[in-house]
Simulated assay, not measured.
Amino acid sequence: MTKITLTIDCGNAPKKEFIKKINIAFAKGNSDFLLESVTDGIVWNIIGDKKIEGKEKLREELKNMKAQKVSELILDRILTHGKEGAASGIVKMQNGKNYAFSDFYEFSGAKATKLKSITSFVIEI
């Protein structure tokens, strides 16, 4: 089971709550929620590694990621403004590796609840 540690309070901010759910879904491998939460033309740019374009490519990537089990997600910060948002924290893997991350999200519109793009910066710590 994946431990979730939140050092942030989403309070009454729907987009912050949505980004929290996105991060938890990634940590728990909840592909269905993730695929429902993105546009068909989603672009996920993992800086220095790869760029995934389109919902079908994302589906394939999520299948590949299932082999990597997360033991803990520490979510430190979530920011949102208009059609943009960001989150940062640490992911601890079951294999003992730990990664710090910062993700930047672009929604399909200011009031939308679907992601158009994600840009991820990930470093092993």
Rank of each mutant, 00 (worst) to 15 (best):
T2V: 15
K3R: 13
I4Q: 03
I4E: 05
I4V: 13
I4C: 03
T5C: 04
T5I: 04
L6P: 07
L6G: 05
I8G: 02
D9H: 05
C10Y: 03
C10D: 07
G11K: 15
G11P: 09
N12S: 14
A13W: 01
A13G: 00
A13P: 00
P14K: 06
K15Q: 14
K16T: 02
K16Y: 01
E17C: 02
E17M: 06
F18Q: 12
K20E: 07
K21V: 04
I22L: 09
I22E: 02
I24N: 01
A25L: 10
A25D: 09
F26Q: 05
A27W: 14
K28I: 09
N30E: 13
N30H: 11
D32F: 10
D32Y: 07
F33E: 10
L35C: 05
L35R: 03
E36I: 11
E36C: 12
S37D: 05
S37A: 13
D40V: 02
G41T: 12
G41L: 09
G41P: 03
V43K: 14
W44V: 04
N45D: 15
I46F: 02
I46G: 00
I46K: 06
I47T: 15
G48H: 00
D49P: 00
D49E: 08
D49C: 03
K51M: 09
K51P: 03
I52E: 09
E53W: 04
G54M: 12
G54R: 10
K55T: 07
K57V: 05
K57I: 03
K57H: 11
R59L: 06
R59D: 04
L62Q: 01
K63N: 11
N64I: 09
N64P: 05
N64K: 15
M65R: 10
M65E: 07
K66S: 14
A67R: 15
Q68L: 08
K69C: 09
E72A: 12
L73E: 07
L73R: 06
L73D: 03
L73P: 10
L73C: 06
I74G: 08
I78F: 03
I78K: 01
T80V: 13
H81D: 07
G82S: 12
K83C: 08
K83H: 08
E84C: 11
E84G: 07
G85L: 01
G85Y: 07
G85S: 01
A86N: 12
A86W: 09
A87K: 09
K92D: 06
M93P: 04
N95V: 13
G96Q: 05
G96V: 08
G96F: 10
K97M: 10
N98L: 04
N98T: 14
N98W: 02
Y99C: 02
A100L: 08
A100M: 12
S102Q: 11
D103K: 01
Y105Q: 02
E106I: 15
E106H: 14
E106M: 15
S108N: 06
G109K: 00
A110D: 15
K111F: 09
K111Y: 03
A112Q: 11
T113C: 00
K114G: 00
K114H: 03
K114Q: 08
L115P: 00
L115Y: 01
L115H: 01
S117A: 00
S117P: 00
I118W: 03
T119W: 00
S120L: 02
S120R: 02
F121I: 06
F121V: 08
E124V: 01
